[in-house]
Nucleic acid binder design. Structure first.
Lengths: 183, 183
DNA sequence: ACATAGTTTCTGAAATTACAGAATTAACCG
DNA sequence: CGGTTAATTCTGTAATTTCAGAAACTATGT
């Protein structure tokens, strides 16, 4: 029985596809990912085609995209010449890989552009003050976030899990940091 | 002189628009936001229409969307009956508001769905083990992230800034946490 | 070199989304 | 009350994106 035949698996796959579209990811790509995530064995491109009712070509490019994110990889199955694919099942790894790739593709170029603009505006006498100031601040802000992420991603997974579970309690350990707001 | 006439302001606005599309935000909405962010004074809908070359109706709905995120607000300008709009200029506030709203709109419903599916699968004898296990794990993972975010957002801004600047160094303060990996 | 698997590119159709202009509603003023 | 202007909603069209299928091309193993 195919995964897609199970109503809950199907609901998951469809929802995952919609989630993707809301975050700028092709629906087909998200669905392929969801299917592989639920599968306990490597699937061939053709099996994916059949379960998700996608065109062979789209599955091909979708798999390539997912491999670009590093959350799907090709595996060899003994006695079968066809390529098989499996998804990352460690969700923490998955999240970090997606974040890393999106930063690389979208955030880093943005930081670079903002840096250029800020530099140019620094020279430009005619530029309105607010424009210079606000673009500069945006550049600094996103750079700071980027640097923070680059550092945090280096932490070992158990440390990350610890930090996550601490939640707002991290603040207790930081000298001079305040307490959570009382809303 | 209009903001859009300044080449650097224009570059910023256009790039911001493209960024939006990559993150599932309407290009027009992002552009309106960028324009208001750079502006030092409240703008009317018509000024936005003129500068960005958008249809009046789209500006109207775009402004509504941005107000829904809480990053643009309507202000009254003395002696002018028309509505004027300004953007949040505190970038930290802006980020938190966007994150809060996207969580509310997209993540929370996802957690709810995954919770339902996980509950149903728990009963279902016929369900494949992996499907149950993986959907449950996904539910737990996203819930954990959500809880972390809900806690962290309560921290006062200065604390957040301190934590961000600390970067990976936070780990030093946490008993039992490891050190950054050496890649 | 042949057969099979995989990828890439092209095409047109389908679906989605963006858009402008018209129609409607609401707010304001004398 | 009219009359005026702004704001929103509605509607048909345009543009974009997504998609499937076909075909050409590449790579690989026998």
């Amino acid at each position: 029985m195919s995964l897609i035949d199970h109503p809950d698996a199907k609901a998951f796959i469809l929802h995952w596809g919609e989630m993707g579209t809301q975050w700028g990811v092709n629906r087909s790509v998200s669905q392929i990912h969801a299917l592989l995530y639920l599968s306990d064995r490597p699937l061939t491109a053709d099996e994916i085609v059949e379960q998700l009712n996608l065109a062979r070509s789209n599955v091909s490019t979708g798999l390539r995209e997912l491999q670009g994110y590093g959350i799907v990889r090709r595996v060899h199955v003994e006695g079968d010449r066809r390529d098989h694919f499996v998804a990352e099942t460690d969700l923490w790894d998955m999240l970090m890989r997606i974040a890393a790739e999106r930063k690389r593709r979208e955030i880093d170029p943005t930081i670079a552009l903002l840096g250029d603009l800020a530099a140019r505006l620094k020279q430009d006498e005619t530029a309105p003050r607010h424009v210079r100031e606000r673009i500069t601040r945006m550049h600094e802000f996103i750079s700071t976030l980027g640097n923070w992420y680059d550092q945090v991603r280096q932490l070992p997974k158990p440390t990350l899990v610890t930090l996550m579970k601490l939640g707002a309690k991290v603040a207790r350990f930081i000298p001079g940091a305040g307490k959570p707001n009382q809303p």
